[in-house]
Design a protein around this nucleic acid. Structure first.
Length: 829
DNA sequence: AGCACGCCGACT
DNA sequence: GTCGGCGTGCTC
């Protein structure tokens, strides 16, 4: 048998071993033996089918090839090679490895995130009767008989079919004995998931290029089959207008049905041809529109160009609507001209058709789009096109850092500070911004980070001259910066000019906007009606049984909700502790704002936008449409309103209570408050109108507020960096976070405490947490986090990571850790 | 991630 | 005894 395979060429005589990456969370690499007949087919970066474990087939990617046989075990043969040419480049494989090391996960997990699902084949175990053996049914047990019976009717059964058939979950032992008795076969069917889209194109039989033949055809058809004549006529007309005529085009243009076309093709008058067509071809793109940069933009562009001479990364800090996109477009054009590929990253929410269309205007079909709303077929297609250099620009969300580039020249990361660049669950918990910067360094490509509110670590790097820095401080197109007014709630309360939660200043501004038929956005960073319910007699406050935070009252559901874990209970009218009926709602959320506003401004059309109102599938989009089409006068909302609301006639933006923004409970506290304030402010004033921002607060002289007014990022960031040098969570640290998950909150509490103490034995003060008494909950798992902070460069992060892995492993071997999942995450700060 | 094995308690 | 639950360990 081997000799047969051996004959076909000399290179086949060698025995190759392929080290592969499996799409699993496994630490080790696995080596498979290459059968001789596949010697010519294997190559690094191609996909192979391998059997892993008893019966499972997986699609793996060849990571390396070697002639050295593994010593400690007998390697299995790999079963098949799926690709004619590699679909993953060596660059990518190294990139995967780097990500796995950096983010403390496995290469297989990175592979899972990197490859579109259609590249990973579906494996379905199928059972069939052994045709060779005439089965002696007298020796069969009841269950075996049932299965054989079913297989008589149906040639194949899947495992799950048999589970249903026998009504029991564990069927493997039964099947195993049947397999050993040679009654059945177990086969694995691997199906290619990707199916290219086909379209039928129509051609005229070349014999009719002769005008006489054509005329003869017409006279013949017109008499006997006028419909067919019409169709041929329509075809000739269409073929003059376009190169390729599809069957659908023809049917549409001629009004002919499929039967007519079929008769014509059967008669060989028309010739049908099936072609794979791209799902991604966009017709009618406009030729590159020209635009002029204004002076500020030109200055910034020159500065960026100049800094790219020395620096690999430049931060473009441009206020909202200062025209950053046009600068990007210029840089992209230059990179294309230099024959390089460009990756243009946007956060998922910003990847609207609006933005895509805008860029398509300039780059037409040179631009490929890649994001999570694409289906698998489309993703595979983009992948192939990047591999074949058909795209010069890729516009995409975070996962597009995984595309098979080979000639990257420039990466643009817009809204660089956006937290949605970070994947939180599942592993790899990567930040596409950081991954992209690393990716760029592998290609000696340049990176432009753009933001109106840069992340602290980015700003820090810019201040330290690790990154270059360019600024745009003016708004584009003559729109001036909004006027910001800080109003003291304390003052107005004293003067008794407050109306519920609204200062007289805000009331006036809102009234005026309504009179002018303009729109208002009110920002309140808290959903629900009231965050605290308190008994006036005994000071009892209902708290979450899991998270130990006070429950928020939601009027719409008349329930008390925990905003961390989702726990819910009936609201109460009687204090469960003392029986008093004097229960008071303290504080306020979006529901209450909406409620009271409708009383104060009964004529205004008010809508609310928060997690509760946007949970339904299209609710978010509907709200945005309503706002755009001016069916809403006042929009009350949480952070959601701070992002992406770029179009409406909003002239007044108010922050109902800035103080709630100034005390975020985590290590990115000031950064977030600042960004929130600045982003909300940036929403005011569009379409040539100057906007107004009202900030209501008890602390008008709070540093962060003052700096937002002065638009003085520099000062804020520098103070931050300075003040936090000795603080618990300083910037420019590397934070390694351990997510500890468990189905049971109580268990989780003890386990995370224990794990933190274990970590303290090695890392001492660097261990922070488990954070707060609170827990968040995702998919029925309660989650706590333990943080470890390391000054950059003070320790070897590689060693630290090794040690952390060890501690986790150690923890997992103890009985204490049962049911508990620990997942590491790395975040630079 | 699967999947087997093994140990345990619960039930026809 | 058999079934189902769950913890443990292995997969080239």
């Amino acid at each position: 048998m081997l000799e047969l395979a051996d004959t076909h060429n000399t290179s086949s005589r060698k025995t190759w071993f392929a080290e592969v990456v499996l799409p699993l969370a496994i630490a080790k690499n696995y080596t498979y033996r290459v059968p001789f007949e596949l010697n010519d087919a294997v190559a690094v970066g191609k996909r192979v089918v391998v059997q892993f474990g008893k019966s499972k087939l997986y699609t793996a990617v060849i990571h390396s090839l070697t002639e050295r046989a593994p010593e400690r075990y007998e390697a299995k043969y790999l079963m098949d090679v799926l690709d004619d040419s590699p679909i993953v480049t060596e660059q990518q494989l190294q990139f995967w490895q780097w990500l796995a090391d950096y983010y403390l996960c496995y290469t297989g997990e990175v592979m899972n995130a990197a490859l579109p699902a259609a590249f990973k084949l579906a494996s379905e175990t199928r059972i069939m009767l052994n045709p060779d053996e005439s089965v002696d049914r007298s020796t069969l047990h009841d269950k075996e008989f049932l299965i054989v019976d079913a297989l008589d009717l149906q040639p194949e059964l899947t495992i799950s079919d048999i589970v249903k058939l026998l009504g029991q979950k564990i069927v493997m032992p039964v099947l195993k004995t049947m397999f050993e008795k040679n009654i059945i076969h177990i086969s694995e069917a691997v199906n290619e998931k990707y199916k290219p889209r086909k379209r039928t194109y129509i051609k005229l039989n070349p014999i009719y290029s002769d005008p006489d033949m054509l005329r003869a055809l017409f006279t013949q058809l017109e008499r006997r089959a006028p419909k067919q004549a019409d169709a041929v006529l329509a075809f000739i007309k269409l073929s003059r207008e376009q190169e390729l005529v599809s069957k659908n085009d023809l049917m549409e243009a001629s009004g002919a049905n499929a039967a007519v076309v079929k008769t014509l093709t059967d008669k060989q008058i028309l010739i049908a041809e099936e072609k794979n067509v791209s799902r991604l071809y966009y017709e009618n793109f406009e030729e590159a529109a020209t635009f002029q940069l204004n002076e500020a933009q030109q200055g910034a562009l020159d500065s960026i160009r100049q800094q790219f001479q020395e620096k690999d990364v430049v931060l473009l800090h441009g206020v909202t609507s200062s025209g950053k996109t046009q600068i990007y477009i210029r840089l992209v054009e230059e990179a294309i001209q230099a024959g390089k590929q460009v990756l243009y990253l946007l956060p998922e929410i910003a990847l609207t058709t609006h933005v895509i269309e805008r860029l398509r205007k300039y780059f037409g079909n040179d631009i490929g789009v890649y994001h999570s709303r694409f289906n698998d077929n489309e993703r595979v297609e983009v992948w192939h096109r990047v591999l074949n250099h058909q795209y010069k620009v890729i516009l995409g969300a975070r996962s597009s850092v995984f595309l098979p580039f080979d000639n990257l020249g420039l990466i643009i990361i817009d809204e660089e500070h956006e937290t949605s660049y970070k994947q939180f669950d599942p592993a790899p918990r990567y930040n596409a911004r950081d991954a992209a910067i690393y990716l760029a360094s592998r290609y000696q490509a340049k990176v432009l980070l753009g933001s109106a509110t840069p992340a602290f670590e980015t700003y820090f790097n810019a201040r330290n001259h690790k990154y270059g820095f360019a600024e745009l401080t003016e708004r584009f197109g003559g729109v001036s910066m909004p006027q910001i007014e800080v109003v003291s709630i304390t003052e107005e309360t004293k003067r008794k000019t407050m109306q519920s939660h609204f200062t007289s200043v805000l009331m006036q501004d809102m009234q005026q906007a309504l009179n002018n038929k303009e729109q208002v956005i009110l920002f309140q960073n808290r959903r629900g009606y009231a965050p605290v319910l308190i008994c006036r007699v005994c000071a009892f406050t209902p708290r979450c049984i899991n998270c130990d935070v006070s429950l928020t009252y939601h009027k719409s559901s008349s329930h008390l909700h925990c905003h961390y874990c989702g726990y819910k209970e009936e609201s109460m009218t009687v204090c469960p502790a003392c029986g008093s009926t004097h229960l008071e709602y303290k504080g306020f959320g979006t529901e209450k704002i909406e409620d009271e506003l409708s009383i104060l401004l009964p004529e205004a059309r008010i809508a609310r936008m928060d997690l509760d109102t946007t949970r339904a599938r299209n609710a978010y989009q509907t709200l945005l449409n309503d706002l755009e089409e001016k069916r809403i006068d006042i929009l009350v909302g949480t952070q959601m309103v701070a992002k992406g609301l770029d179009f409406s006639d909003v002239t007044v933006v108010a922050i109902i209570n800035a103080d709630s923004l100034l005390k975020y409970p985590d290590y990115r506290a000031n950064e977030r408050s600042f960004q929130m304030l600045a982003q909300v402010s940036g929403r005011a004033g569009r379409r040539g109108k100057t906007g107004k921002v009202v900030i209501q607060t008890y602390n008008p002289h709070h540093r962060v507020i003052e700096q937002v007014i002065a638009n003085d990022y520099k000062d804020l960031y520098l103070t931050e960096i300075d003040e936090r040098r000795n603080f618990k969570y300083p910037p420019f640290y590397r934070i390694i976070q351990l997510y500890v998950k468990h189905k049971d909150a109580e268990q989780l509490y003890h386990q995370s405490e224990y794990l933190a103490n274990e970590l303290r034995k090695h890392f001492g003060e660097r261990v922070i947490g488990p954070e707060f008494p609170l827990i968040s909950r995702i998919r029925n798992m309660y989650i706590k986090s333990i943080m470890l902070k390391f000054e950059k460069d003070s320790v070897s992060i590689a060693k630290v990571k090794l040690l952390i892995r060890e501690v986790i492993l150690q923890f997992q071997t103890t009985k204490l850790s049962k049911g508990c999942i620990v997942q590491p995450d790395v975040d630079p700060y």
